[in-house]
Simulated scan of single mutants.
Amino acid sequence: MTVDERTVRVDLGGELDALNTGAFMTAFHQVLATSDAALIEFDVNRLTFLDSAGVQALIECQTAACARGRRLALRDPMPIVHQVLTITGLLDDLGLR
């Protein structure tokens, strides 16, 4: 994770699925609580798998960020993650960069 005044960048790798979304959400809420950055950016270029629980977690992150007046963006998704977000119709909603 890297932080500057305007952006928090969180590197995600491996799988975001039902087995690890709880830990992911806990970490995300820590970021929200400890940073005032306007943009929270998930660098997903090493995320190799995203299931429905992972998609739900990203939606919850987006909702929580917006509720605090912040933006969420995804950066550089792997083709499989890009495909999942396209199929679910979330590619634009999650602020692809």
Results as ranks from 00 to 15, higher is better:
1 M>Y: 03
1 M>P: 11
1 M>D: 12
1 M>G: 11
2 T>Y: 07
3 V>F: 07
5 E>F: 06
6 R>E: 13
7 T>P: 05
9 R>T: 15
10 V>T: 09
10 V>F: 05
11 D>Q: 11
12 L>H: 01
13 G>N: 01
14 G>D: 04
14 G>P: 03
14 G>A: 08
16 L>K: 03
17 D>V: 12
18 A>F: 11
18 A>I: 15
19 L>K: 08
19 L>V: 09
19 L>N: 08
20 N>V: 12
21 T>N: 02
22 G>K: 09
22 G>T: 12
23 A>C: 07
23 A>V: 10
23 A>F: 05
24 F>T: 05
24 F>M: 06
26 T>Q: 14
31 V>L: 12
31 V>R: 03
32 L>V: 02
32 L>Y: 01
34 T>E: 14
34 T>N: 11
34 T>I: 06
35 S>F: 01
36 D>N: 13
37 A>D: 07
38 A>N: 04
40 I>Y: 00
41 E>A: 15
41 E>P: 03
44 V>P: 09
44 V>T: 15
45 N>A: 12
45 N>G: 11
47 L>I: 09
48 T>C: 10
51 D>K: 10
52 S>K: 07
53 A>H: 13
53 A>L: 10
56 Q>Y: 02
60 E>R: 02
60 E>W: 00
61 C>D: 00
62 Q>V: 00
64 A>W: 02
65 A>I: 00
66 C>K: 12
66 C>W: 03
66 C>V: 10
66 C>L: 14
67 A>V: 02
68 R>T: 01
68 R>W: 00
70 R>Q: 08
72 L>V: 01
76 D>T: 15
77 P>W: 05
77 P>E: 03
78 M>Y: 03
78 M>R: 15
78 M>F: 08
80 I>H: 06
80 I>P: 00
81 V>F: 06
82 H>W: 07
82 H>T: 09
83 Q>D: 15
83 Q>G: 06
86 T>S: 15
87 I>Y: 09
87 I>E: 14
88 T>R: 05
89 G>T: 06
89 G>I: 01
90 L>E: 10
90 L>Q: 08
91 L>S: 07
91 L>N: 05
91 L>P: 05
91 L>E: 08
93 D>I: 00
93 D>P: 00
96 L>R: 10
